[in-house]
């Protein structure tokens, strides 16, 4: 039995729903923040994800960080060495999707050449009439960047677990790979 620990940073433009998504996942859908309150720094949430067919788990230390430009730069210092990345945009805001490239760039600058498994999350899927980003477009871009794509609605508790579970799985696979590599050295 092993419990891994991963530093999961959640980034993306402001008001796309990073905090709502993180908190819905953390509370198993019990806590949806109705009123918007801007995250000015970094909020830390911790949750364990069990790995199916094993007695192992991954404890995610979720660093929900400010999306607003003014606060974003100081936040980067708090990311430390990220283990996994959750990049969020708002399906009803094309601008928030276009900015994803810049967020990814930022994270890569901070990860010092290390492989960082990531997901791209299109949030607010409940607002289907206001959708500005097509699923196929987002999916293609995610694929080109090596990210796994998920659509969620934090408001409707739709699919909120999937991105985090997939990050935990990816981190766990990476751990098993590394053990194989280290065994081969000796």
């Amino acid at each position: 039995m092993v419990k891994l620990r991963a530093r999961c940073i959640v980034v993306g433009d402001s008001a796309v729903g990073k905090s709502a998504l993180s908190q819905m996942f953390r509370s198993d859908g019990a806590h949806f923040q109705r009123n918007y309150s801007m995250t000015a720094g970094v909020e830390l949430l911790v949750k364990s994800v069990n790995i199916p067919d094993s007695s192992d788990s991954v404890e995610l230390f979720i660093f929900d960080s400010a999306g607003k430009e003014t606060f974003a730069e100081p936040c980067e210092k708090l990311w430390g060495q990220p283990s996994v990345l959750c990049l969020v945009f708002d399906l009803t805001s094309e601008a928030s999707f276009r900015n994803c490239g810049r967020w990814l760039e930022r994270v890569r600058t901070n990860s010092q050449g290390q492989q960082v498994p990531g997901v791209l999350v299109g949030n607010k899927s409940d607002l289907s009439s206001r959708r500005e980003v097509e699923k196929a477009v987002a999916q293609n871009w995610a694929q080109s960047q090596g990210l796994e794509y998920h659509e969620t609605s934090a408001k409707e508790t739709e699919n909120c677990e999937a991105p985090f579970v997939s990050l935990a799985q990816a981190f766990y696979s990476m751990y098993q790979d590394r053990i194989q590599v280290i065994h081969s050295l000796a």
Binding site: V2, K3, L4, R5, A6, R7, V58, F61, G80, Q81, S83, F171, Y175, R178, I179, I182, A186
Partner: peptide, 10 residues
């Protein structure tokens, strides 16, 4: 040949 491995984060 045997080792201790860290399980994530520093």
């Amino acid at each position: 040949e045997t080792f201790w491995i860290s399980t994530g984060m520093f």
